[in-house]
């Protein structure tokens, strides 16, 4: 593709992201306001029904927001500065941002500690020199990807888990993210990091993992995925900073 064509696509993509975000801002605001109004409804069944409807709206909005984020990230030419970041901390932050969805998974652990919203972010110091916001987005993408399969109705009666591990080894910070949500179709596993490859029948335009790879590459790291034990395991390696 010509460079000028790419520039046009970048502009179109970031324009679209802006056009999605603007209405989303007031839709999200209105839904939040409706939530406060609903709290005052005395009829229990009406209130509960409204609250569950709003939960559904929120989940749809979250998907749109993530889509706009991904589109912006795809076209993003601005340079976020790299800095010394505790990778463990970014993992905890990303988990907190999807906390609501995590409630439906039976076990969510980070280095064998059960995840909770008030979990300390500095229990471990796994330092890398990276783009803070992008790395947090990277975890959000991979975790949401795992949750998309873990939260399918077919897993309702199973013991679902999301197992995250972070460690420093051989001058690298190594993060693994494992789930037991059936894994990725073997025909697709080699191409999941390519754009517009969706592993989901019901949703997704297949940009998430492409962005994930882009972020990892920008930060001089590596990413891979393998199917194992009824699920998928992502391994991300980032160059570590040894504390002085």
């Amino acid at each position: 593709m010509q460079k000028s064509e790419l520039t046009h696509i970048d502009k179109l993509t970031s324009g679209l992201a802006h056009e999605i975000n603007t209405p989303l801002t007031y839709i999200k605001g209105v839904v939040e306001m409706m939530g406060y109004t609903a709290e005052d409804i005395e009829n229990d069944s009406i209130r509960t029904q409204l609250q569950s409807d709003m939960e559904m709206l929120s989940s749809g909005m979250r998907r749109l927001e993530l889509l706009a984020d991904s589109m912006r990230e795809m076209s993003n030419t601005s340079k976020e500065e790299k800095q010394e970041i505790n990778i463990y901390e970014t993992l905890i932050s990303a988990l907190k941002s999807v906390n609501k969805r995590l409630e439906y998974v039976d076990s969510v652990t980070v280095n064998d500690d059960e995840f909770s919203v008030d979990m300390l972010k500095d229990k471990y110091q796994h330092l890398a020199y990276v783009h803070y916001h992008r790395i947090e987005l990277l975890w959000t993408i991979i975790i949401n990807n795992a949750l998309d399969s873990l939260l399918l109705e077919t897993h309702e009666d199973e013991n679902t888990y999301l197992k995250i591990e972070s460690k420093v080894e051989n001058k690298s910070v190594i993060v693994t993210i494992k789930d037991n949500g059936n894994g990725i179709d073997s025909d697709l596993i080699d191409s999941i990091f390519e754009p517009f490859t969706s592993t989901k029948d019901y949703s997704g335009i297949g940009m998430g993992l492409n962005i994930a790879r882009k972020i990892v590459k920008e930060n001089d790291g590596e990413i891979s995925a393998v199917n194992m034990n009824n699920g998928v395991k992502f391994t991300i390696t980032l160059p570590s900073v040894i504390p002085e």
């Binding site: 970031s14 603007t22 993003n76 601005s78 340079k79 976020e80």
Partner: peptide, 8 residues
């Protein structure tokens, strides 16, 4: 703003 770039 709907754009969050570090530059802005």
């Amino acid at each position: 703003t709907a754009y969050s770039t570090l530059d802005k």
